[in-house]
């Protein structure tokens, strides 16, 4: 009787957050609930996008990779042993698919993932057009000069810090408020690049 007064929509992920929410959606999607799959797509596409972009793919290629990753999930819906591992699976699959795309674009030259990660992004940052503040343009330009490894890590750190991406923080074991030594080094590099730029801070 008490339930009559609630606004619950009756979906299994209702009221859940973070990893619990995404695991509940995945479980429902496996049972054929397409609304559950749509929730995952809507909420986790930005994550897949930023991993692909953090791996140095241009925007057009990243759009393709995002779709490829979700198509792969269709195939793996029943094979993912742990619904709670979805976010980790998405990150790993996006990295792998980005790497594959990279290999093809670099004319079949074999790069190990480690080498690719260290290469500065070859993508200029044309999106900076959208930035009106000089200070924002400088920060974005400096960010674009970081190694791909740092760019991806900082994108993920930013996402993991947002309330709606608690599952990302959980998948990457990033406790709230903790930056960690590798991220710290990336931020130090970023600060050094900003200082080189004339110290307009």
């Amino acid at each position: 009787m008490g339930e009559l007064g609630t606004t619950s929509t009756g979906v299994p992920w209702d009221g859940l957050q973070g990893t619990e929410r995404h695991a509940a959606c995945l479980t429902a999607a496996r049972a054929g609930n397409s609304a559950a799959l749509d929730v995952l797509v809507a909420e986790l596409t930005p994550l897949v996008w930023h991993v692909a972009r953090g791996r140095g793919l241009d925007r057009g290629t990243a759009e393709d990779v995002v779709q490829t990753v979700w198509l792969s999930l269709l195939k793996h819906l029943d094979r993912l042993e742990q619904p709670r591992a979805l976010v980790g699976w998405l990150i790993t699959t996006t990295r792998r698919e980005s790497h594959r795309t990279w290999q093809r674009r670099t004319d079949h030259v074999e790069f190990t993932p480690d080498v690719v990660e260290q290469v500065p992004s070859i993508e200029p940052q044309p999106e900076a057009v959208a930035l009106r503040e000089e200070r924002d343009r400088q920060l974005w330009a400096a960010f674009g000069q970081l190694s791909q490894r740092c760019q991806e890590l900082l994108r993920l750190t930013v996402l993991a810090g947002r309330a709606e991406y608690r599952s990302v923080a959980e998948a990457l074991h990033m406790p709230h408020g903790s930056i960690g030594p590798t991220r710290g080094r990336c931020l130090t590099s970023l600060r050094a690049l900003l200082d080189e730029d004339g110290g307009a801070r």
Binding site: E127, A130, G161
Partner: peptide, 25 residues
């Protein structure tokens, strides 16, 4: 502070394409 600034910048400088979620669906 740097992370906060990057957070504010990320969606402005490199937004997820507006129709991408619909295209994935």
């Amino acid at each position: 502070q740097l992370l906060r600034n990057l957070d504010a910048l990320l969606d402005l400088a490199d937004p997820v394409p507006a129709d991408l979620v619909e295209r994935v669906k």
